[in-house]
């Protein structure tokens, strides 16, 4: 048996080479990590810092948790959270259900599909402000296209004038805006469902309805969860469409609009940052719940 004796110098060289190879992935990741630190962690940390301060005459004044205490005593904040949850629940449910329906329809073979796809994508590519303005006109009291149709039901008054009506318009506009993306997500998932599996289900006597709910839906469930997470986060953080449609009226003041009001309009950065941290935690908790739910499934 032959034993190789490695000199101490060579051993050190080998060891350092081993260390270097182990560190290579880290070195390769470093640029990305630095960028991530700069664009993600720094703003988050700075937001936490601002939330513990008040900005007055260009000076940061340390106030500890005073901004959070103010926020938790503020009835308007709780009301805005409640409106956010109503808004998110309505938009997520409608977007996911309608998105699935549209995706199923688009998944059928039709020579008009490219045209339908283009039509579907229009609401997605236009800006929040344009979308908001279009929807505002649709319900304008005197010449709004939809308002004219529903006027007999509303006594001639625009839906905007009523708190529930204003919220309904905001929800409808948001569903219209987010439907294309959700539909496309579902369409991609549907197109990856194996034909053999569907044919096997059909051979076993499953109707198209049963096949969809018992076979297709479980297969695309991860995509459905992703769509729910994205629609929830999008809904919670939505500002543009709401502000364009209904301005600053209390009826549609969701938490994100409240954050905009306090932070940007009134220049209360401390309170704005405190609200954004609460919103961040809500987003995080909801996402974790969805992921946990998905893992258990």
């Amino acid at each position: 048996m032959r034993t190789e004796v490695i000199a101490p110098a060579a051993r050190t060289q080998l060891r350092s080479g081993f260390h270097f190879r182990r560190l290579v992935p880290l070195w390769l990741l470093l640029p990305s990590l630095l960028i991530l630190l700069f664009v993600q962690f720094y703003p988050t940390a700075y937001t936490i810092y601002i939330s513990l301060n008040r900005l007055r005459a260009g000076q940061m004044i340390w106030v500890g948790t005073a901004n959070f205490e103010r926020l938790f005593r503020d009835a308007n904040f709780y009301e805005s959270l409640q409106k956010s949850f109503t808004f998110v629940a309505a938009t997520v449910i409608a977007t996911v259900v309608l998105g699935l329906l549209v995706a199923v329809l688009l998944n059928q073979r039709s020579r008009f599909n490219p045209f339908y796809m283009v039509m579907l994508f229009v609401p997605w590519v236009i800006s929040d402000v344009v979308a908001g303005t279009v929807w505002r006109w649709l319900f304008q009291q005197d010449y709004g296209l939809i308002q004219n149709l529903i006027s007999p039901l509303t006594g001639g008054t625009s839906l905007y004038a009523r708190p529930q009506g204003a919220m309904l318009i905001v929800i409808l506009a948001t569903i219209w805006r987010s439907l294309p993306f959700t539909s496309l997500l579902f369409l991609g998932a549907l197109q990856h469902v194996s034909q053999e599996v569907l044919e096997s289900a059909a051979l076993d006597g499953a109707s198209r309805f049963t096949s969809f709910f018992r076979v297709t839906l479980p297969i695309i469930r991860p995509t459905v969860m992703v769509a729910i997470i994205l629609a929830t986060i999008g809904g919670l953080n939505s500002v543009g469409v709401i502000l364009t449609l209904t301005g600053n009226i209390p009826a549609t003041e969701t938490a994100s609009v409240y954050l905009y009001e306090q932070g940007w309009r009134f220049g209360d950065f401390g309170l704005g940052a405190a609200i954004s941290i609460i919103m961040f935690l809500i987003n995080l908790i909801l996402t974790l719940v969805y992921l946990r739910f998905q893992r258990e499934e």
Binding site: R136, Q141, D142, G155, T157, S158, A161, R162, T246, G247
Partner: peptide
């Protein structure tokens, strides 16, 4: 007063 006065914007002027 018309109910539209409670909406945002300036439709109340109409």
């Amino acid at each position: 007063v018309p109910e539209i006065a409670l909406a945002s914007g300036f439709d109340f002027e109409n």
